[in-house]
């Protein structure tokens, strides 16, 4: 896995809690209390029941690889390539997905459906990125 410059996600009113939780080692999403539906990106209302009784739910960090692409293009001068962009689906809810990087896995061993677990990559005092690695060491 190449390393490349990672810009900081801005801490915005609806996203700051997500990034700060990652920095604390937890994967958390806004959740509807009656539906138990995880709402990502966070919204002030549940799109399923339109209820506004929301809390925060911590998930296991386990996921399946929904799709992936190996990026070879330098999107700015000097960017290190290739790297693996993954779209992972968390096991707690169909369709609850994160764009991420798949790490600690040889590129040729990456396949759709593989079991992954979160690995938090600190980026600042307040932000960490949720990256994903094979659940079982490869």
């Amino acid at each position: 896995m190449s390393t490349f410059f990672r810009p900081l996600p801005a801490l915005e009113p609806r996203t700051a809690a997500f990034w700060r939780a990652c920095r604390a080692g937890r994967l958390e999403f806004t959740r509807c209390v009656p539906c138990q539906y995880y709402i990502h990106p966070s919204r002030p209302i549940c799109p399923k029941c339109r209820g506004r009784n929301l809390d925060v739910g911590t998930v296991s960090g386990r996921a399946r690889l929904h799709s992936f692409t190996i990026n070879h293009q330098r999107w700015y001068p000097g960017q290190e390539v290739p790297y693996v962009i993954g779209l992972v689906e968390l096991i707690e809810q169909p369709g609850l997905r994160l764009m991420t990087n798949v790490i600690n896995c040889p590129i040729e061993r990456i396949e759709i459906g593989m079991a992954l677990r979160v690995h938090f990559e600190p980026l600042s005092e307040e932000v960490a990125l949720p990256l994903f690695e094979p659940e079982l060491p490869i």
Binding site: P7, E12, T15, P41
Partner: peptide
């Protein structure tokens, strides 16, 4: 620093619709 929905994409190097649609 990245704001809005790209904040969930750009820090992971998903910097183009080419990446998003490749998925």
């Amino acid at each position: 620093q990245i704001s809005g929905f790209p904040a969930f994409f750009i820090p992971f190097g998903a910097m183009s619709a080419a990446n998003w649609l490749a998925l």
